[in-house]
Amino acid sequence: MKISVPMVLNSRAQTLEVEPYWTLQRLLRDELDLTGTKEGCRTGNCGVCTILVDGRAVKSCLMLAAQAAGAEVTTIEGLARGDELHPVQTAFVEYGAIQCGYCSPGFIMAATAFLAENPRPSRDEIKDALEGNLCRCTGYIKIFEAVEAAAGALQRS
């Protein structure tokens, strides 16, 4: 039996019919084809499915779709404003923080939530904040640099 779940998804208010056992990840990827939210472990350990729920970073494999009732949900597809990238996205592109890119949407969402909370982080604070997201390609260095650059850009904007 599907249930009705109202939510604001990527700035659009809508009511979605979901199975009670679906995770948000399942809803986004398999039912809504929002495949920018990736799937990597389904156990909350890799972070590639990170999205924003009411502005907080959430691993969408660990949250049921039904739990998002009434919430504002933002996926990587909803972060840019039209063709204008979010400063975190721009920084990831420009600083070479993207190699295979599979972890990138999750990192970008996690970093966006973190910078909203801590606009002027130290390198160590960035390292700690991103611990829940795995990257195997970059060695994380260029990701740290991108987050620092994004913090600067957000300050200026």
Binding site: G36, A80, Q89, T90, V93, G101, S104, I108
Partner: peptide
């Protein structure tokens, strides 16, 4: 910059 970085950063890859 990597050719596909923009696509990857926006979830479109």
């Amino acid at each position: 910059l990597k050719q596909d970085a923009y696509l990857k950063a926006t979830g479109n890859a």
